[in-house]
């Protein structure tokens, strides 16, 4: 086994030269071009990424603009709706007020009307009652229409104050209204009674007044003494009206 040292040395040098050659002409340029392509690919990717980002941004902007328009529209719609609502409220309130006023007025009218009606009814009822009483009293005997009231009249005159009583019959005869012409006896009875009360004799001037229905009315200058059905009926009617 011999080793040719010259060959070994030459081969070592050869391989080293080949190493340099290949490194110079094969590996370095190929690796460089690979790196360049990678860089280019990265650049392209970055560019694409940037473009994507830009597109995304633009889209977001457009979206925002759209949103702004939409919200503006919604705002305007809301505003208009609010105005309309306010207007509606106002109109409603006006209408309500008018209605209320009309209703109040109607109520008042109604009340007034019913009151008037009631008054009319009451009056009618009073008149009717008067008429009924009048008719009923008309059935009484004619004598009873005077005789029964003489004592009452005399008592009423007696209830008058002193100053008023003294004035009765001083200036001529005492005017007396009666439901019908009293008889002589009744006149005498009246004169006696009055004379007893007043302490002096008085003259009586009798006039007929059928509207009194029954009873007497002493009509002097200082005092009027009523003692007849008409006065009673009138009082009762007034009482009835007052109650309503």
């Amino acid at each position: 086994m011999t080793i040719d040292w010259w060959t070994l040395g030459l081969q070592t040098v050869n391989v080293l030269i080949l190493l340099w050659l290949l490194a110079r002409f094969l590996f370095r340029p190929v690796a460089k071009i690979i790196a360049e392509r990678q860089a280019a690919a990265h650049a392209a990717l970055d560019e694409a990424e940037a473009a994507k980002v830009a597109a995304e941004t633009a889209r977001a902007e457009a979206e925002a603009a759209k949103q702004a328009v939409l919200s503006e529209r919604a705002e305007k719609i809301a505003e208009v709706r609010k105005d309309a609502e306010v207007e509606k409220q106002r109109l409603m309130a006006e209408l309500q007020a008018e209605l209320d006023k009309a209703r109040v007025q109607a109520k008042e009218d109604l009340a007034r009307q019913s009151k008037a009606q009631e008054e009319a009814l009451s009056e009618q009822a009073g008149v009717l009652a008067g008429d009924i009483a009048e008719r009923l009293l008309a059935r009484l005997p004619k004598e009873a229409r005077i005789a029964g009231f003489i004592d009452g009249l005399v008592e009423a005159v007696g209830a008058l104050p002193e100053s008023t009583r003294t004035g009765i019959g001083l200036n001529g005869p005492v005017p007396l209204r009666a439901a019908q012409m009293p008889t002589e006896a009744e006149i005498a009875q009246l004169r006696d009674g009055l004379g007893k009360i007043l302490g002096r004799a008085v003259e009586i001037e009798v006039t007929e007044a059928p509207e009194l229905i029954a009873g007497l009315e002493l009509d002097t200058a200082t005092a009027i003494v009523r003692n007849h059905f008409r006065a009673d009926l009138d009082r009762i009617t007034a009482e009835v009206r007052k109650h309503d």
Partner: peptide, 26 residues
């Protein structure tokens, strides 16, 4: 004085081929 043997010659040929190839190809 240097003896050139057959492997060295073949290696030169290979070097030449590889060198030229890589130079042309790259």
């Amino acid at each position: 004085p240097v003896p050139i043997t057959q492997p060295v010659v073949v290696t030169w040929a290979i070097m030449l081929a590889l060198g030229v190839f890589s130079f042309v190809a790259t």
